[in-house]
Simulated assay, not measured.
Amino acid sequence: MDSTTFLSTTYIRTTPERLWQALTDPAFTDRYWGVTFENDWAKGSPLVWKQGGVTIAHPEQVVLVCDPYRRLSYTWHTFTEEWAGAVGVDEDVRARLAAERRSTVTFDRPASPCRTPGSPPGSAEPGRADPTRPADTVTRARRGGWTRRGPSGEAAAL
């Protein structure tokens, strides 16, 4: 793993088919993430992100790998002013997020089920970051939850 990689591993007790549905079906992604994706999940297809009444389409936000029930990978993090307003992210934080390099997310199912030795079935292993890489805004936000504006318009610092 190089210094630009952040790896988070979660073990989920489900079938490959149900996991695939949870990652690609708009009803599931809306229910659990508050986001829907509009695309055909073909390699190279644009990943159109819909959240908070805002649609985000960008030529660099695309599906990289689509192998049903096995692997799904795409680029994302097109942080627009419209998105920030819809989800309550402060403009200063949005600008810092937008200035960082685009993220790639990959969901990968190993060939055989596995879990951390000694951990109970269905348990999750916490994410680990490369200690030599300073945490960027996206990584800090992911760890602590996205910054939201309070009732008076104030925003907590990341």
Rank of each mutant, 00 (worst) to 15 (best):
G44R: 05
R115L: 05
W146K: 01
L97G: 06
V54S: 10
S112K: 15
A99L: 08
G118P: 04
V87P: 03
C114K: 07
E91D: 15
G145I: 09
G145M: 07
G153M: 08
T36P: 06
A95I: 10
T104W: 02
L72I: 01
W83P: 02
P110D: 11
V48F: 04
P134I: 09
S73Y: 09
T36L: 07
A98M: 05
T147C: 11
P26F: 05
T80R: 08
V63E: 04
L64F: 04
R109A: 10
S103T: 11
R133I: 00
R102D: 01
H58I: 01
P110E: 06
K43M: 02
A27P: 01
E100R: 15
T132S: 13
H77T: 14
E38Y: 00
A86C: 05
Y74L: 13
Q61W: 03
V93K: 06
V105S: 07
P110H: 13
R94M: 11
W76E: 04
V87W: 13
R149S: 02
G85R: 12
W76D: 08
P110C: 04
A141Y: 00
D25L: 02
R140L: 08
W146D: 03
R133V: 04
S112L: 09
R31V: 00
A86T: 05
F79Y: 14
S119M: 11
L47K: 01
R31T: 10
V89Y: 01
S123G: 12
R71C: 14
